[in-house]
Amino acid sequence: MKQIQLKQVSKCFGNVEVIPPLDLQIEEGEFVVFVGPSGCGKSTLLRLIAGLEDVTTGQVLINGEDATAIPPAKRGLAMVFQSYALYPHMSVRKNIAFPLRMAGLDKAEQARRVEEAASVLNLTDYLDRRPGQLSGGQRQRVAIGRAIVREPTAFLFDEPLSNLDAALRVGMRLEISELHKRLATTMIYVTHDQVEAMTMADKIVVLQAGMIEQVGSPLDLYHKPCNTFVAGFIGSPKMNLLAGKEAAKHDAHTIGIRPEHVAISSTAGEWEGVVGVSEHLGSDTFIHVTCPVFSEPLTVRASGELDLTYGAKVYLTPDLAHLHKFDDLGIRLK
């Protein structure tokens, strides 16, 4: 069932059109991630769905009903903010209970649901603390607790992990994924981090300058990026995008090849180059190779142990099965 639908939704701030009219459908129970570089309009899009901003044109449908004119308080959506936006003057218990209190639930029911949410999120010991006394990860969990107690139609996450340190981020990523599996509620998640998008999403919406570049599953985007922007944005390290004579050999304006799909050899191969900086990650080594035939250096993945000294001559061979071809507008060639 289509749970949230955007029909020809656009947004202007003054004379600046930040989101040109777009359509989008989100199915019930899906984990959808909006991803794109900062300033691409992904947060604005989320706020339009939340009702924190008015759409300039178009309609927002929730559960098939037109919600365009419904204020955020009545849309039945819960949101987790980047800054967590906890109420600093209330205890954790009161923070989590706040939406229930606003909904007018009786005290006993409020208490029951708060306890339940707290045990799911490992917050039981912290219920009487103030947000100021909690660590970043705990605050994040309180914000999630406040969202889940009201059993919303959908959860909206606005870059929830960007204020956490790297190690915590990985942990919280797993927790949120787990939560999604358990609750089976629709989640819309905004991030600028393509790793988060790839690891968590059922469906990724790649945005650039307010426009949807591509919608698809993580593997769709990885294997069949529909243009050079998506190709360069999804995957880490970035896909090598190469233009010029070599691309023309493959009847394309630009060819793309991921670092993991290039073979490197010290004896023979298609492109000759010189080894630049190597980044050793233990499991993998990423080597930057400068080839005279391309204007930019290529990134190549090599197996962990390979040792190539700076300045050594090497040969690269792309795996043709994984070669992406794009035309002069950057659109994928069939």
Binding site: L52, A73, M79, S83, A85, Y87, R146, R150
Partner: peptide, 15 residues
Amino acid sequence: IPGEILEAARMDGAT
């Protein structure tokens, strides 16, 4: 006062 906190209240159903 960060505006996000008031928005959070709105999302939480506060009039």
